[in-house]
Nucleic acid binder design. Structure first.
Length: 806
DNA sequence: GTGTGAGCAATTTTT
DNA sequence: TTGCTCACAC
């Protein structure tokens, strides 16, 4: 919520332009009549991007090529030339952070002369603004949204779906609400309302998908609520169904700019197309090589198709990189070259010299964490002459999956190295914040049934499932909201003594808070504090002995403080679902640990990329689920990782890694083989791959990294060869599995054996770790205890069940 | 209605 | 290994 309303006066930096930014009436400035200072210092491509104002423009902006600068300067230019007033420019981003940054930079470029841009924001926040003006048009004749609609987050969404699943008498275990939420999300991402589902898809989710979806949408309307996906979908449907409305918005937005275009999904694409179709002044900025969100609906195709979608489009490439050394760029470029279906870009830099990308293998994940810890201490202590003494803030560790973080956290904790984990649960997702917000929501809108259910028994009031059911029955029968139903339940005496007393107390308190929430004389900040105190919510955490209780109390304080920025609770609640983030200011000197996904858009002088092992990175699941497409997205993720580094990038892998409590061994990532050898320095590790210390062969000779730059045949890679060799030694068939588990094999099985499983049928053992087998069945890979399978030839004998090794 | 242990599953994440 | 859900006992 930071940056709301504020943030337009950040003049801390000394760009020449700022001093000169006098509020000359924009209309009086003739094009080209006088030099425009903000254009100085742009390279030719950036300048072209800024000056190509009319018609469709695709700005292909590689990592670190000054994309935001081009984009913000373009906005400044539009304003400065008088092509549009701030309110006539639509500029969309994906995250609040990006929107905030852009606002600040535009303001900085133009000085105080320009009011904030009202239509610079995320897809979602802009959609909300549009929807609130036309809410009545969403829904059917009898039931429609009201402008005050609430926005449910994922948690509410899932609870709502769970209710519907239970109501439909569906086994929630086999068909979990979370999965349904995904399904519905994916439909909304494609802008499909329940009636528009393609034949067949409505039968998803055990045949219930379409019906549940329809029921859910109906329920949302009843609750006067939308979920995140609705925001976009409703907007698109609004535009489609009401040409006059669409026209008015088309007229308003004379210029459209889109950031991170490669991340747009179908709904966002339609949204943009509708708005841009009249004047086609749309400028999309993106990088197909950094498309890493396919799994949540992003369509790389949108950016790949741009030129045919918008005939006559100009394509401008930003390829001069201002971030990384040539070795880093070359390594990244070499890697990404293995992808097909790219628009193609070649990053280059004027900078010379610099370190090669370093590559190192370790015995196991603990050794990897230990080594990286030592390296960081060395950088921090200034023991790496070439790089000088570095702040911990200059260093980041980027992992594929969050479970990898643990090894680092454990290690850094032991050696006392300060670190911070970026990402993780967001502020507003924390239970205490959501509870508190539910109180506020209920105080503001007594009909908010989801909020009621969330907090009616938090803190514990002895109102459990049964009491809630009674209230629900009462409410349903009399067509009341749950809160009203609760009042009625107390009145009719449908609830026993103790529960009734507690419920009465709760409803009465809520009544008071509601009155106060409507009373403009009552300070909403004080009211919020009072609600938390009187409800016993604060006391609940004060009495909690768990170690995170103090932190939760702090969060609550922060929440109350955040309220100060808003006029009243309503205003807060309307915005908060979309705007809260957990960007805590960074004053302290700490190493950053985060996932590769979280790192997109960031940069660090020193970057560590651990865990480059096949199966982990690229992730086995990605490849299983999405095949080549999945692999290419993983490769883009690797590309994103490398291009985060400014001066030094270190890639590492471990031969053994503990996953889910068991040690598993793995092979170096195929991506390692794709790195161009000339730009990689191999730090030879002693005794890798079970050779023991002083093993004769270097496990990773430089020449082996990349034997053929053009050919990207993984079957010829060193990792693959090693695996083949190992398989051959055991006289077993070679399989296309990247993970080979080679701890002590379970006594009766070997890799390659055919086995039978009751549920999955026949399969082939791909790996063995202690008593756990990795088996490839017709349906895919499964990890299974050795006791649950038997040799295929003896299927039915049952013998294998009795003498499980270990 | 609330507190405890067995059993089970387990990427990536914004709004 | 952990963190969560569910079934069961108080």
């Amino acid at each position: 919520m930071r940056g709301y309303g504020a943030g337009m006066s950040n003049f801390d930096d000394s760009d020449a332009f700022e001093a000169a930014a006098a509020p000359v009436p924009l209309s009086q400035r003739a094009i080209g009549a006088r030099p425009v200072p903000y254009l100085d210092g742009l390279n030719p491509a950036q300048r072209a991007a800024v000056e190509a104002l009319d018609g469709p423009v695709l700005l292909l902006a590689g990592a670190g090529t000054g994309k935001t600068r081009a984009l913000t300067t373009r906005i400044a230019h539009l304003l400065n030339l008088g092509r549009a007033r701030p309110g006539q420019i639509l500029a969309v981003t994906f995250t609040n952070k990006a929107a905030r940054e852009m606002k600040e930079r535009v303001a900085r470029l133009l000085g105080e002369a320009v009011e904030g841009m009202p239509w610079l924001g995320t897809f979602h926040s802009i959609s909300v603004k549009i929807l609130r003006r036309h809410a009545e048009l969403i829904g059917d004749g009898e039931l429609h949204l009201k402008p005050s609609f609430t926005i449910l987050d994922t948690d509410d969404q899932i609870r709502l779906l769970r209710q519907l699943i239970l109501a439909g008498n569906i086994d929630e275990k086999r068909w979990p609400a979370r999965q349904l939420a995904h399904l519905i999300d994916s439909w909304k991402n494609r802008c499909l309302s329940p009636s528009q589902l393609p034949r067949g898809e409505e039968r998803a989710f055990d045949g219930w998908g379409g019906r549940l979806y329809a029921a859910y949408q109906r329920r949302l309307l009843e609750l006067n609520a939308t979920d995140f996906g609705d925001l976009l979908m409703h907007c698109v449907h609004l535009f489609q169904a009401h040409p006059d409305v669409l026209r008015s918005w088309q007229d308003r937005f004379r210029y459209i700019l889109v950031d991170e275009y490669q991340d747009t999904n179908v709904a966002q694409y339609m949204w943009l197309r509708l708005l841009a179709s009249a004047h086609r002044n749309i400028c999309c900025v993106g990088d197909d090589d950094q498309s890493i969100y396919g799994w949540r609906g992003a369509e790389v195709g949108n950016i790949l198709r741009f030129e045919s979608d918008f005939p006559g489009a100009q394509v401008i490439r930003l390829e001069q990189n201002y971030r990384s050394t040539p070795h880093i760029l070359a390594a990244a470029s070499g890697l990404i070259a293995a992808n097909r279906g790219r628009l193609g870009k070649t990053l280059w830099t004027e900078v010379e010299g610099g370190e090669k990308v370093r590559l190192i293998g370790h015995w196991d994940s603990e050794a990897e964490a230990r080594w990286i810890g030592e390296e960081i201490e060395a950088f921090h202590g200034g023991h790496r002459a070439a790089l000088g003494r570095r702040n911990l803030n200059d260093i980041a560790i980027l992992v594929r999956a969050s479970h990898q973080m643990r090894a680092f956290e454990d290690r850094f904790m032991t050696i006392g190295l300060p670190y911070r984990v970026i990402g993780g649960p967001r502020f507003y997702e924390r239970a205490e914040i959501r509870d508190a917000m539910a109180y506020f929501r209920l105080a503001v809108s007594p009909a908010d049934d989801l909020a009621f259910e969330r907090i009616v028994n938090v803190p514990k009031r002895g109102l459990g499932e049964k009491a809630v059911q009674t209230i629900q029955r009462e409410a349903r029968e009399r067509n009341l909201s749950l809160l009203e139903g609760a009042v009625s339940t107390v009145a009719t005496g449908a609830l026993g003594g103790k529960g009734a007393a507690a419920l009465r107390q709760f409803t009465e308190a809520m009544g008071r808070w509601h009155a106060d929430a409507l009373d403009s004389r009552v300070s909403h900040v004080e009211l919020a504090e009072r609600i938390l105190d009187e409800s016993g919510y604060t006391a609940m955490w004060q009495n909690d002995k768990s170690p995170d209780a103090p932190g939760r109390l702090d969060n609550l304080k922060e929440l109350v403080k955040a309220l100060e920025e808003f006029e009243n609770l309503q205003g807060f609640l309307e915005h908060v679902a979309l705007v809260m983030d957990n960007d805590s200011g960074e004053q302290t000197d700490e190493v950053s640990i985060m996932t590769l996904h979280a790192a997109k858009g960031l940069e660090y002088p020193i970057v560590f990329l651990p865990g480059w092992e096949d199966g982990l990175f690229p992730s086995q699941r990605s490849m299983d689920e999405s095949g080549l497409k999945g692999l290419e997205e993983e490769r883009r993720l690797a590309y994103v990782g490398i291009t985060r580094g400014r001066e030094l990038v270190t890639i590492s892998f471990a031969g053994n890694r503990r996953m889910y409590g068991q040690w598993q061994s793995s092979l170096p990532s195929r991506f390692i083989d794709e790195l161009p050898e000339d730009h990689v320095e191999v730090l030879t590790p002693p005794g890798l791959y079970g050779g023991g210390y002083g093993a004769a062969a270097q496990p990773f000779a430089p020449s082996a990294i990349h034997e053929r730059a053009a050919q990207s045949d993984v079957y010829n890679s060193p990792g693959w060869k090693r695996m083949q060799q190992r398989s051959a030694e055991r006289a077993q068939p070679v399989h296309r599995t990247p993970i080979v588990i080679d701890a002590e094999p379970a006594a009766r099985f070997s890799v390659g054996d055919r086995v039978f499983h009751q549920k999955f049928g026949n399969g082939t053992i791909m790996g063995i770790a202690e008593d756990t087998l990795t088996v490839e069945f017709a349906t895919g890979f499964k990890t299974i205890k050795a006791g649950y399978v038997q040799p295929a030839s003896q299927a039915g004998s049952g013998g294998a069940m009795d003498d499980v090794p270990f």
